[in-house]
Simulated scan of single mutants.
Amino acid sequence: MKSIYTALLQHCGAIKGAIDNVKLGNITAMLSKIEPAVKMSQGFTGKKTSKNEEFVKHVSENNVLYTMDQIRKKSPILKEMEEKGEIKIVGVFYNLTDGTLEFLK
């Protein structure tokens, strides 16, 4: 079975920018694509700021899960292939601090 991976790096500046609702030229459009993950993360208990690394990681993981969901919604062909077991859509969180990968469902 082939896998399609969607990944995100730990300490991603784009995630922090989306949390802070940064508006800065061309980057604004990119950050708007992360906003759904910020909204998905509002149930997080604790400080919801870009300075809270736990919250940043939570948003990052939600961004990967959201991206996986969007792949399935926007590509019926890939969704069907996954349902038939021909491929697997996999989310991965890359930890920069220790080089490990966390696979998300």
Results as ranks from 00 to 15, higher is better:
Ile34Gly: 03
Asp20Gly: 14
Thr97Arg: 13
Val56Trp: 07
Ile89Glu: 02
Pro76Leu: 05
Cys12His: 06
Glu61Met: 12
Ser75Pro: 04
Met81His: 10
Lys79Gly: 04
Ala29Leu: 03
Ser50Thr: 08
His58Pro: 08
Ile71Gln: 01
Glu86Ile: 06
Lys48Tyr: 08
Val90Asp: 04
Lys33Ala: 13
Phe103Lys: 15
Leu104Gln: 14
Glu86Pro: 01
Ile89His: 02
Ile71Val: 10
Ala7Leu: 15
Pro76Arg: 04
Leu96Lys: 10
Asn62Glu: 07
Ile19Lys: 11
Asn95His: 14
Met40Asp: 15
Lys2Leu: 14
Phe103Cys: 02
Lys51Leu: 06
Asn52Ile: 00
Ser41His: 09
Met68Val: 08
Leu78Met: 08
Leu24Lys: 12
Asn21Ile: 02
Ile27Arg: 03
Ile87Thr: 13
Met81Gly: 08
Ile71Ser: 00
Thr28Val: 05
Thr6Arg: 08
Lys16Gln: 12
Asp98Phe: 11
Lys84Thr: 11
Phe93Pro: 05
Val92Gly: 04
Lys48Ile: 08
Lys84Tyr: 06
Tyr94Pro: 02
Tyr5Leu: 12
Met68Pro: 10
Val56Gly: 07
Ala7Val: 06
Ile34Ala: 02
Ser3Tyr: 07
Glu61Asp: 13
Cys12Gly: 00
Ala18Leu: 07
Lys2Glu: 07
Lys23Pro: 00
Met40Cys: 05
Val38Tyr: 02
Ile19His: 00
Lys23Thr: 14
Met81Cys: 11
Thr45Trp: 13
